[in-house]
Computed example of a mutant assay.
Amino acid sequence: MDDVKIGEILLPGDEAEQERQRDRVKKRFWPVLKRAVRQIPFSRDLIASYYCALDPRTPLRVRGTLLGALAYFVMPIDVVPDFLAVVGFTDDIAVLTAAFAAVRGHVRDDHYVAADKALADEPDLQPTR
Rank of each mutant, 00 (worst) to 15 (best):
L60M: 14
L70A: 01
C52E: 00
V62I: 13
A71G: 06
C52F: 07
R63T: 09
Y51R: 06
C52V: 05
I77K: 11
Y51I: 07
I47E: 02
L54E: 05
A69T: 01
D45I: 14
G68V: 05
V79D: 13
P81E: 12
L66S: 03
F83Q: 13
L54C: 14
A53H: 00
S43F: 12
A53S: 05
A69Q: 03
A48K: 03
L67D: 03
P76G: 08
P59L: 00
P59I: 04
V74E: 04
T58S: 02
Y50K: 04
F42V: 13
L54H: 02
G64F: 13
A48Q: 00
M75K: 13
D45E: 14
D82I: 12
S49T: 11
V79S: 11
F83L: 11
V80N: 08
L54F: 09
M75G: 08
P76D: 10
D78A: 10
D82C: 15
A53F: 01
A71D: 08
S43I: 15
G64W: 09
L54W: 01
F83H: 12
V79P: 10
D78F: 08
V62E: 09
L67A: 07
F73Y: 05
T65K: 10
D45V: 11
L46Y: 08
L46E: 06
A71I: 04
V74D: 06
L84F: 13
M75E: 11
I47A: 07
S43T: 14
A71E: 03
L60V: 14
L67C: 13
C52N: 02
I47T: 14
L60F: 12
A69V: 08
D45F: 14
L84A: 11
Y72L: 01
M75T: 10
R61N: 07
L84P: 12
D55T: 05
L67F: 02
I77E: 09
